[in-house]
Amino acid sequence: MFTNLIKNLEDYLHFEEDELAFLLALMETRVVKKNEMVVRVGEPANYVYYIDKGLVRFYHELDGKEHTYRIFRENMWISDYAAFLTRSKSIMNIEALEDCVLIQLHYDHMQKGYERAKVFERFGRKMAESLFLTTVQRTMDIMAKSPETRYLELLEHDAEMIHRVPLKYIASMLGIEPESLSRIRKRTARFHTKS
């Protein structure tokens, strides 16, 4: 059951067998149906989630309109991490876009890991660094790259997502309206064979 998770953890750093067993024992599996909310704005952000199967959308609402920040897929971690770290209520929604299998780690369990061995602190730091770098990169992309460039980069790095995610969410993630995405897709059709 934890095969993908173990590989993901080992990509962060090496765990001794007993350390890995200890960490896995702290985690629990959660099955979430398509369109089900994993976390809602205002709820405690008690968990970080590893996505073993499925897609989830990370979004917020402003003036009655949903704004998709990012789509997460298999082999990624997700949480309203700032709220998780500060023990505050989530300011983001996390929604399943497909039936999902999540492996969740509670804040208190993460703290137990930190107390047990330095490797868990290094893992937490590496996870935080990864999330920070992703956030900085997204901010820089929005500021410095055109929506068309961001779309082409998404096609290049994760074309499968285009086929799994409703285009309105892709458009929102790119910071544009669906109609603008349609025009971009028509203009860039020569760069991809299937859309």
Rank of each mutant, 00 (worst) to 15 (best):
G113M: 00
Y69R: 08
E66F: 11
F123H: 01
A83F: 07
E121W: 03
D99E: 08
N75Q: 08
E129R: 09
Q137T: 05
Y107A: 06
M76V: 03
L105W: 00
K112E: 13
L102K: 01
L62R: 12
G113S: 01
S130G: 13
F120P: 04
S79P: 03
K118M: 12
F120T: 03
E66G: 08
L97I: 14
N75V: 03
H60M: 12
Q137D: 13
R73F: 07
T68A: 11
L133E: 15
A128I: 04
L102I: 09
E61M: 12
Y69S: 12
Y69A: 12
L131A: 10
I91D: 15
I71S: 00
T68W: 08
G113V: 01
N75C: 03
T134G: 11
N93T: 11
H60P: 13
I71M: 00
Y69W: 13
M110W: 09
E66H: 08
D80G: 12
T135S: 14
A82V: 10
F132Y: 11
Y114A: 00
F58P: 03
C100A: 02
R87A: 15
N75T: 01
K65W: 15
Y81V: 03
M110Y: 06
E129I: 05
L85Y: 04
R116L: 06
V101C: 04
T135K: 12
L62N: 11
I71H: 00
H106S: 06
I71Q: 00
Y81Q: 07
L105P: 01
R70V: 08
I71T: 05
Q104P: 06
L105H: 01
L131H: 07
F132S: 08
Q137Y: 08
T135H: 09
S79T: 07
E74S: 07
L85Q: 12
V119N: 00
Q111H: 05
F123W: 02
L133Q: 14
Y59H: 13
E115F: 07
L131F: 10
Y59K: 04
I91C: 10
K112L: 09
D80N: 10
I94Y: 02
M76A: 05
F123R: 06
G64M: 13
F72R: 02
K65R: 14
S88Q: 14
K118S: 13
V56W: 00
E129Q: 11
V101Q: 08
Y69M: 10
N75F: 01
K118G: 08
T86A: 09
L62M: 15
S79I: 02
D80R: 06
E61D: 12
V56T: 09
L133F: 14
L133D: 10
S79E: 07
E95R: 05
D80Q: 08
I94W: 00
G64S: 11
N75K: 06
D63M: 11
S79G: 06
R73W: 02
V136I: 14
E61F: 12
V56M: 01
G124I: 02
K65S: 12
Q111V: 06
E115V: 03
R57M: 14
L97A: 02
L131K: 07
A96R: 02
T68R: 02
I91P: 06
K112M: 09
L85T: 05
M110K: 09
S79W: 03
V136K: 10
T86E: 11
V56D: 00
A83W: 07
D80H: 13
F58D: 05
N93G: 07
T135A: 15
T135N: 14
K112H: 10
V56R: 00
H109Q: 08
I78Q: 04
S88Y: 07
R125F: 04
Y59F: 15
G64Q: 14
R57V: 11
